[in-house]
Design a protein around this nucleic acid. Structure first.
Lengths: 342, 342
DNA sequence: CTGAAAGCGCTTACAG
DNA sequence: CTGAAAGCGCTTACAG
């Protein structure tokens, strides 16, 4: 016999469809004995519920919001595009996704966003932003309203978020260091390290991983004190230029945050392509061009399309109360060089 | 007004549901004028059909078969597991997937497989195997029966397959060469190259890409003539050992096919870890362990889970006559080192 | 606490 | 060539 349906369960348990439905959806107001009879019928027949039929019947729509920082960055643009593209495909699965660019470090703005999400009755939220008390508070409010919440790219480990969608940044830093060390070959000297801000947990983690591997495996290389590019390619260009001016023995640059464009600009201007090893993060139109031009040697990337789809899938699974395929939701630390550019 | 349904179209066009359905599904037997009226209503209201409701109504099930070679290889095991895992998740989407391990180079076996696929009324087939006349013939038969067909991992470019799910092997070879050259640092010498068989197109392509980059970018390194490991780690170990014995200046080994386990075994036995640069393909339990042990330096991988899910999604899209998200179906050339192991 | 009936958006025989 | 009615597998008011 083929897949059992609610009708089969009803017959087998000697109850009506409505009662089967109540038990399946764990609604109150059913006698213990009845619940048990239905449960037994379910397991005896090996019933599994057809979620798309259920969604059709209840006209279920999933409304998700993605909260991204309103800072200008090419990667955020890439990510936003990826979310929009994923949203198109997910429409068929009754998911409506909207992206909100918000000033994530402004408490007032965050409260307004929360009000808005509440008003439009969102089912799930993916939040990206630094770990701050405001953010933790926002997540707590969302969870209090029973929304599904995932942290995107930057984890919010001490919050009530249901999942984290992103990479292990320590491992990413370690990976960057191996590429730096091996690509540098026999050269000895120092390595410049630029991040957005040492306030951000991911930057700190990348730096720690990077330092670990450099000191363990490449004793000929010394990482210089971190300089901060403040998410801005002009600032990044300036601090990196200063760094190169004050250290004659720099053989490589690790750009752990945004602003990679500033780095490649300095490298190009000074004719350092192929002489400095440059390792950065995040594939964007700029970093792709820089890889092709040879001003950057390798990019550590997290696939924007994968991030977007994974966040949506996990939010949906959370809403449905079902599990996910762990391996599919694991965001990979991609290594991209000119030759394997997608 | 919210999403229009078939009812809205029927009312707007002044016809019945059945007629709307006929037009939407392009069935014959509707007057040209009627077709036009319905089409106009569709575009006027911006109707898009709810595929899951349609599938529910027609009790549509998708039956897919994956044909994998019956040769023993760890990567095939990994792939088979990935397919089984994907199948579990796709059950919810009414997809039933079965994997058939077949002697793909045996014409008689292939004909039998075809008969079987025909008998169980499969909707789509993913085939993996060398490009042979038999294979091309099999694909032609499948297409003649209106099945969707994708080539998996190894393309069948001169066949009628609908899509190719796999990587650009030339680019993969180029990527391997960059890793080889950069990891070798200042060392000069020769590089051993082992493949399954030079009859296989992917092996030839990888070798070409590898040679291109080596001669363009790393003049200090010379690739030795290809040796064949015949998909067997013992044979691979033997031919690599011979290669090392007869060439004193080998600084690296590129294993473009299966049998990487044989390479890492020789490297381990001879205490060459860290002295020879070893680059191979495909992440398996063995190659993972070898990366961790340091007997292999880098793996070029194609994600098995991604291959499996992508093949299924593309087959389904083909059956439904809809498009796919190109970026999601592009199989990436992954670079895996110890530090970014998933 | 439980059930009969209608409905979600689409498709399918069957009749005409 | 076209339509009325029943049905896919589930859920939801409404009655009792």
């Amino acid at each position: 016999m083929s897949k059992p349906t609610v009708h089969d369960i009803a017959r087998e348990a000697g109850v009506s469809l409505a009662t089967v439905d109540r038990v399946l959806n764990e609604r109150a107001g059913v006698r213990e004995v009845t619940v048990k009879r239905v449960r037994e019928a379910v397991s005896r027949l090996g019933y599994v519920r057809d979620i798309s039929a259920a969604n059709l019947a209840r006209q279920r729509r999933y409304r998700f919001a993605f909260l991204l920082p309103d800072t200008p960055s090419q990667f955020l643009k890439v990510l936003q595009d990826a979310i929009d593209e994923a949203a198109l495909g997910l429409k068929l699965d009754r998911c409506e996704i909207q992206v909100l660019r918000v000033p994530v470090s402004d408490p007032v703005a965050l409260v307004n966003v929360f009000r808005r999400l509440e008003r439009i009755a969102v089912d799930g939220v993916a939040v990206m932003g630094n770990e701050t008390p405001m953010m933790r508070d926002l997540i707590a409010r969302l969870k209090a309203r029973r929304m599904a919440v995932v942290a995107l790219i930057t984890d919010q480990p001490n919050s009530e978020r249901d999942h984290f969608i992103g990479i292990d940044n320590m491992a990413a830093g370690r990976t960057a260091a191996v590429l730096m060390g091996r690509f540098a070959g026999p050269r000895r000297g120092s390595v410049a390290v630029v991040v957005n801000s040492m306030q951000a947990r991911d930057m700190v983690e990348r730096r720690i991983g990077f330092d670990q591997v450099l000191s363990e495996q490449f004793p000929g290389l010394t990482a210089l004190p971190t300089v901060e590019g403040r998410d801005d390619h002009e600032v990044t260009a300036r601090v990196i230029a200063q760094c190169l001016d004050s250290h004659a023995d720099v053989v490589g640059i690790y750009c752990a945050g945004a602003g990679l464009r500033g780095v490649s600009q300095v490298v190009a201007e000074r004719g350092l392509a192929g002489r400095q090893v440059v390792v950065g993060h995040d594939l964007t139109p700029h970093s792709r061009a820089a890889l092709e031009a040879g001003t950057i040697d390798a990019i550590i990337n997290q696939n924007a399309g994968h991030l977007a789809r994974s966040a949506a899938r996990v939010l949906k699974a959370q809403c449905d109360g079902v599990g996910v395929i762990a391996s599919q939701e694991k965001i990979r630390i991609e290594i991209v060089i000119k030759e394997n550019l997608p």
